[in-house]
Structures are given as structure tokens and as C-alpha cells.
Design a protein around this nucleic acid. Structure first.
Ligand SMILES: [Zn+2]
Ligand SMILES: [Zn+2]
Length: 472
DNA sequence: AATCAAGGCCAC
DNA sequence: GTGGCCTTGATT
């Protein structure tokens, strides 16, 4: 009779889970050290974090608890009303509520191995790394972009921002390895059969869901794999392996986690913030994410840094708009969001690069995309096509870009042909949208630059660097 | 060789 | 059952 525990909370692995964050901690630490992560508290019980465990940073005991629970398929019950408070001193009292909280904060069942293999890395490894990078970035932003900070000494030269970002990313190995092992990708290109991709969903298959807990959870565990399922179920197994690989390299949940994490951190304990300034910060973070994705993306990562810069400088704003469209269309990103301080933030304006007059073109593009059933595989392909634009002037290795472009186009063409026979000219209609998005992004950039000249936008950001770069 | 998350061990 | 500490092993 128990109504299952599915709680699809929107808390991703990164950023602050709802009930946690700085506020709930028993003591307010005065100096959030700049070295290590700020929140070193277990989101489940508040104990000290010992590392990433099953999807996020938790303490050692909750790691062990989660492991035992899943491995042994424990079914607990709560003697109260299933809302017991879990903290370090009381966590042993109600395992039901403890496990419930584990799931709420985002601990991943799939990370518990059915075969009990020890050591090594799983598919979350790259995510952990990206999460670390993102935390650092948010933290940096937090202390460097505080309103009216005294430190006016912008010592660093304004040049070479993009290049710097790319190189920094390389040196500090922000994400030096792609989320997907190169072998399956190469195989998907060269061999029709398919690549031996061991591991994968191991626990799901072998852990028999005889407990109501797990049955509901395994089926309800759509959060992360939502788009994967989407891609896989669009039309059986008709998604070309290349595109499937692209889709799997996405990490949408992190996108929204990063967004809301930034919104929260920027407005927490603030009575009122400049919403345009906030918008710029969000765009800046998106941009950083964009560069990070591009760096590790297929085709692009093989290019020299100079070419990478040229492509990014040409496509960054298009990519931002496309990503927002994708989040709105496929990931239920709302039009606005209430900030912790009570202000409302217009999420829709992110798609407009802040420019109000772009609302109409955006609406138009959105309608056209909806009409042709624009889906996640389509989105990934367009993303690649935007980035790998062989029309960009001055490319050293233009040939590589052309080939990449052709391969993606071919894959997308095949996909639409196989899966969307009932939508005539879907492929052509999709490509026709690219110029329109580009027109929007150009206007958006003009707008942002204009605002920047008026001193409305934060300086010293990658966003501003991009705006300047194209202008000279 | 170093990392570090996953599983194992075993007093408590 | 807990949870601190240990071993493992793919990844870098
Ligand atoms: Zn804990
Ligand atoms: Zn309880």
C-alpha cells in the first residue's frame, strides 16, 4: 500500500540540493575556504563529505548505507509519516527516510554495481570531474563578480580570453577526457556492427526488482536518462550510432543544475540584484559550459586551438540560443523562476540574449521547431552543425571541418528520413532554421554590446571577451 | 605512478 | 546494521 517513494526532485549532482546548502548547516562557517569545495557537508545527513559516491558528494556513512541498501535490496518502513528529519545524530533512526533522502538528493542506483566489481571508474567519472570544474567556476564567479567589489585592479590584459579559456581547460584538465570512450565512437563510424561497450547498466539488469521500492525507482529513474530514452524510443533502434553517441555525450541535468545553482548563489542573502547583470552571469556560465562541451566534442577536439577559437567565436551565441531552445522544448525549462530573494528571473530572456525585440523571432522559430517535431537527436546535430561551420573564414584545417559537417549532415539526414517519414522536408526545414537563429544571435550580440557600452554588463567575463573578439 | 570511487572488511 | 578504513583497478 505504500505509495512508492519516487521523488523526481530537480536536484542534479552539482549545485545545492533543495534542503541543503549553506543555510541548513548547523553552524555558519565564516571563512569558506577558497581552496576546497565550500559545501563539504553531506546533503543527506550533514556529516563531512568524503568524496563523490553514487553520483554526488556524500559522507562515508551514507555511501555505505546506500550501498548496503541497494546491494541487499533492503525494504525499510517508516513508523512515522515518512518525513523523518535526517541528520548526523539521527540518521540511524529511520533507514526508510534516510534512503528516501538519499534518492531525493540524487544518489544514483545505477552506480551500485550488480556484479560487485571493484575499483576502476564508471560512467559517472567524467561527470564528477565536470562537477568539480563547475563548482570551481561558480565559486570563482561568486567572489569575483560580487556587486561593487573594491578590487578594481583588472591587471590581466583583456586579450586572449577565449584562447586562455581553452588552454586553461586543457592544462588544468577540466575535462581532459570525453565522457564517452573513443572506441565506441570510432567503431560506430567504421564498423556497422557496433562496439563492445561493457559495463553500462549492470545493476539494473541483475538486481531483480522484487521490492516495491526498487520497482518504482528503476522505472521512475528517468531523470538523467530522460533524453536517452527519448532518443532510443523515437523509432526503435533507428537512431544512427553516431547520433546516439552525440546524445549520450550530453548532460542536460547538469545544465539546469548549474543554472539554478548560479541563480541561487547569486541572490542568496541579497535583497535585490540587477537582473540584467544576473542574466549576463548566467550567459557567461552557459558560455563556459559551451566551451567545455566543444573542447571535448567529437571532431572539434581534433582541431588546433586557433581553429577552435574561430569556430567558437562565430557560433557561441547561436549555440547559447539553441541550448536554451532545447532546454525549453525538451527539458521543461520554465519561462521564469523565482529567486531566493523574492525577485523573478525571466528565463525566457536567456533565449533572447536579453534582447526583448527578439521575442517574436524566437516565438516563430519555436513554433517551426515544434511543428517539425524537433527532438533531441535533431538538437545535437544542429549543435554540431552550428559549431562545425566550414564557412568560417581563416580556418587552417578547413577540410576537417568540412568532413565533419558532412558526416553530421548525413547522419541527420538519414535519421530524419528513417524516423520522420511522415514529416515532409523535415531535414531541409531544420537546416533552414539555422540562418534564422544566426540572425537572432547577431542581433542579440549587438544588443549585449550596446548594453555593455552603457556599463550595464559585468566586465571581465568570457561573454564580454567574445563580444569584443568578433568586433576586431 | 598517482587518483579516487566502488566494493570489502570487521570491530562496534 | 553502522561506519571508518582498506583493497582494487580503470583512468590519466
Ligand atoms: Zn551522510
Ligand atoms: Zn521515517
Amino acid at each position: 500500500m505504500d505509495p512508492i517513494v519516487i521523488v523526481p526532485s530537480l536536484s542534479g549532482p552539482s549545485s545545492l540540493p533543495p534542503g541543503t546548502s549553506g543555510g541548513s548547516s548547523t553552524g555558519r562557517h565564516d571563512l569558506p575556504d577558497t581552496k576546497e569545495g565550500i559545501e563539504e557537508l553531506c546533503p543527506v545527513c550533514g556529516d563531512k563529505v568524503s568524496g563523490y559516491h553514487y553520483g554526488l558528494l556524500t559522507c562515508e556513512s551514507c555511501k555505505g548505507f546506500f550501498k548496503r541498501t541497494v546491494q541487499n535490496k533492503k525494504a525499510y518502513s517508516c513508523v512515522a509519516d515518512r518525513s523523518c528529519h535526517i541528520d548526523k545524530s539521527q540518521r540511524k533512526r529511520c533507514p526508510y527516510c534516510r534512503f528516501q533522502k538519499c534518492l531525493e538528493v540524487g544518489m544514483k542506483l545505477e552506480a551500485v554495481r550488480a556484479d560487485r566489481m571493484r575499483g576502476g571508474r564508471n560512467k559517472f567519472g567524467p561527470m564528477y570531474k565536470r562537477d568539480r570544474a563547475r563548482k570551481l567556476q561558480v565559486m570563482r564567479e561568486r567572489q569575483l563578480t560580487t556587486p561593487r567589489g573594491g578590487g578594481g585592479g583588472g591587471g590581466s590584459s583583456s586579450g586572449g580570453g577565449v584562447k586562455h579559456e581553452i588552454q586553461i581547460a586543457q592544462v588544468s584538465s577540466l575535462t581532459s577526457s570525453p565522457d564517452s570512450s573513443p572506441s565506441p565512437l570510432a567503431a560506430s563510424l567504421g564498423y556497422p556492427g557496433g562496439a563492445p561497450t561493457p559495463q553500462q547498466h549492470s545493476s539494473t539488469s541483475s538486481v531483480s526488482p522484487k521490492t516495491f521500492h526498487f520497482e518504482g525507482l528503476l522505472t521512475g529513474n528517468v531523470q538523467h536518462s530522460q533524453l536517452l530514452l527519448h532518443a532510443g524510443s523515437v523509432s526503435g533502434a533507428k537512431v544512427p550510432p553516431l547520433i546516439r553517441e552525440f546524445v549520450q555525450s550530453l548532460d542536460d541535468k547538469e545544465w539546469q543544475s548549474a543554472l539554478f545553482g548560479l541563480l541561487q548563489s547569486q541572490t542568496y542573502n541579497q535583497c535585490e540584484v540587477d537582473l540584467f547583470e544576473l542574466l549576463c552571469k548566467v550567459l557567461d556560465q552557459n558560455l563556459f559550459t559551451q566551451v567545455d562541451w566543444a573542447r571535448n566534442s567529437y571532431y572539434f577536439k581534433d582541431l588546433k586551438v586557433d581553429d577552435q577559437m574561430k569556430l567558437l567565436q562565430h557560433a557561441w551565441s547561436d549555440l547559447l540560443i539553441l541550448d536554451h531552445l532545447h532546454q525549453r522544448l525538451h527539458n521543461h525549462l520554465p519561462d521564469e523562476s523565482s529567486l531566493p530573494n523574492g525577485q523573478k528571473f525571466d528565463l525566457l530572456s536567456l533565449s533572447l540574449l536579453g534582447c526583448p525585440s527578439l521575442a517574436e523571432p524566437l516565438h516563430d522559430v519555436t513554433a517551426r521547431l515544434t511543428e517539425i517535431r524537433f527532438d533531441v537527436p535533431d538538437y545535437v546535430c544542429l549543435k554540431f552543425l552550428m559549431l562545425l561551420n566550414s564557412d568560417v573564414k581563416g580556418l587552417m584545417n578547413r577540410r576537417h571541418v568540412v568532413e565533419a559537417q558532412e558526416q553530421v549532415q548525413q547522419a541527420l539526414f538519414d535519421y530524419t528520413l528513417n524516423c520522420y517519414t511522415h514529416i515532409p522536408d523535415k531535414f531541409a526545414k531544420m537546416l533552414a532554421i539555422l540562418p534564422d537563429i544566426h540572425a537572432m544571435s547577431s542581433r542579440g550580440e549587438e544588443y549585449l554590446y550596446f548594453k555593455h557600452l552603457n556599463g550595464c554588463a559585468p566586465t571581465q567575463t568570457l561573454l564580454m571577451e567574445m563580444l569584443h573578439a568578433k568586433r576586431k
